[in-house]
């Protein structure tokens, strides 16, 4: 029954009192896959991770991790899963090497046994071996946490927003490590609020308010976007947002970095819109066609919910 599925989730429901954190979620992560959970805060990502890590029990539905049921075979899961919570949760007063040795010993292995697996990551931590974990930088903390989650060579890795609050360079390095771990045959479920990181996953699940909106490859997600998208820029960005939203052919307009993204109807004429904006007194107005990203898809899907 294990086969090529690392995580199987079926109709999973979790409620906290009146709040429904997960509302019938279902998906599968294949063995050796790097699977991303993309969604805003409050989408239920952390709840899903805690369920899969056996820290919570579901109210309905079922899930299997590495072929083990998360309720009945919780014990078996604990030795096969590496879990990295969203919040730094190693011992701040233990040094880097003490933390690593402690977690290795908890799982009944020695650091040496699986050193090969963590070596590329741990090499960067080596100079700070004796420093207390609480005194490391954000990026270093995440690397140490990843080492500790990997030291017993789990078959499935659960990473809850590992790159939140980490600088862009460290984030990029972190994803390179994940790609390498996948090549070692470890299945990875990773949550992130950063849409740009989704591009690095094999497949992603878009989630919002306890539901999955789509499960697709990143390219498939983008390809599913069936609208026309323009980027609007100018000197008076706030006024432009209001003007664009009032325009007839514009279906949606939202800030996107330094520009506004406009999702428009087929008959929309960008050049005429630009001239009218200039005539209305806006300065340096530019409008150009852009390719959609995952975030655009996400925003569109959320509207349709």
């Amino acid at each position: 029954m294990v086969g090529d599925v690392a995580i199987r989730v079926e109709g999973l429901v979790k409620r906290y009192g009146a709040v429904t954190a997960l509302d019938g979620v279902g998906f599968e992560v294949r063995r050796g896959e790097l699977f991303g959970l993309i969604g805003p805060d409050g989408a239920g990502k952390t709840t899903l991770f805690r369920l899969l890590a056996t820290l919570l029990t579901p109210d309905a539905g079922r899930a299997e991790v590495d072929g083990c049921d998360i309720v009945r075979e919780a014990r078996a899961i604990r030795s096969r899963v590496g879990y990295m919570p969203g919040r730094f949760s190693l011992y701040a007063d233990l040094s880097v090497e003490e933390n690593l040795a402690f977690f290795a010993a908890l799982f009944g292995v020695s650091v040496r046994d699986n050193y090969g697996l963590i070596e590329p990551i741990y090499r960067q931590l080596e100079p700070f071996r004796t420093r207390r974990a609480g005194k490391l930088s954000g990026g270093m903390k995440q690397k140490l946490a990843l080492c500790c989650a990997l030291i017993h060579r789990p078959s499935v890795l659960l990473l809850d927003e590992p790159t939140t609050g980490v600088d862009p360079v460290s984030r990029s390095e972190f994803w390179e490590m994940l790609a390498r771990l996948r090549s070692e045959g470890i299945s990875i479920l990773v949550a992130t609020p950063y849409m740009d990181e989704a591009q690095r996953c094999d497949r992603v699940a878009l989630c919002d308010r306890g539901r999955l909106l789509a499960v697709e490859t990143p390219d498939g997600v983008v390809a599913s976007f069936d609208g026309v998208l323009y980027a609007l820029s100018g000197r008076e960005m706030f006024g432009l947002l209001a003007a664009a939203r009032a325009e007839a052919g514009v279906e949606a307009c939202y800030p996107f970095g330094a520009v506004h993204h406009l999702r428009v109807a087929r008959e929309f004429d960008p050049e005429r819109f630009r001239r009218r904006l200039l005539a209305e007194g806006f300065h340096e107005v530019g409008i150009r066609r852009v390719e959609p990203g995952i975030e655009d898809v996400f925003i569109k899907r959320m509207e349709h919910e």
Binding site: T54, R78, S89
Partner: peptide, 10 residues
Amino acid sequence: GTIEQINVSP
């Protein structure tokens, strides 16, 4: 939060 790491261990 350190207890979470203990709780997911055997």
